[in-house]
Simulated assay, not measured.
Amino acid sequence: MSVTSHATKFAAPRTDAAGRIALIGLTLPEMIAALEEHGLPKFRAKQVWHWVYHRGVTDFEAMTNLPRDLRDTLIEKFSIERPGVMTEQKSTDGTMKWLLVMADGQQIEMVFIPEADRGTLCVSSQVGCTLTCRFCHTGTQPLVRNLGPHEILQQIMYARDVLGEWPVAGEKKDANQGRDLTNIVLMGMGEPLYNYANVAKAMQICMDEDGLGISKRRITLSTSGVVPQIVQCGEELNVNLAISLHAPNDAVRSEIMPINNKYPLAELLDACRNYPGLSDNRRITFEYVMLKDVNDSDDQARELAQLLRGIPCKVNLIPFNPWPNSPYECSSGNRIHAFARILNGEGYDAPIRKTRGQDILAACGQLKSESQRAKPTA
Rank of each mutant, 00 (worst) to 15 (best):
I214G: 08
S215L: 04
K216W: 09
R218A: 03
R218F: 01
R218S: 08
I219A: 07
T220C: 10
T220L: 10
T220E: 06
L221Q: 10
S222M: 09
S222I: 03
S222L: 05
S222W: 00
S224W: 07
G225W: 12
G225P: 08
V226L: 15
V226I: 15
V227Y: 13
V227Q: 12
V227A: 14
P228K: 11
Q229A: 15
Q229I: 00
Q229C: 06
Q229S: 08
I230G: 07
V231N: 11
Q232K: 14
Q232G: 02
Q232P: 02
Q232W: 02
C233K: 02
C233M: 15
G234Y: 10
G234V: 11
E236R: 13
E236W: 11
E236K: 15
L237V: 09
L237S: 10
N238K: 02
N238F: 11
N238G: 14
V239N: 12
V239K: 05
V239Y: 10
V239Q: 08
V239S: 14
N240E: 07
L241I: 05
A242S: 15
A242D: 08
I243Q: 12
I243D: 13
I243H: 13
I243G: 13
I243P: 05
S244W: 08
L245D: 05
L245M: 04
H246T: 05
A247N: 06
A247Y: 03
P248H: 09
P248D: 12
N249M: 10
N249I: 02
A251C: 00
A251H: 07
V252G: 07
R253M: 06
R253D: 12
E255D: 08
E255H: 10
E255Y: 03
M257E: 04
P258C: 08
P258N: 07
P258I: 04
I259S: 05
I259N: 07
N260W: 04
N261K: 15
N261M: 01
N261H: 14
K262I: 10
K262S: 12
K262A: 08
Y263P: 03
P264C: 09
P264Q: 09
P264E: 11
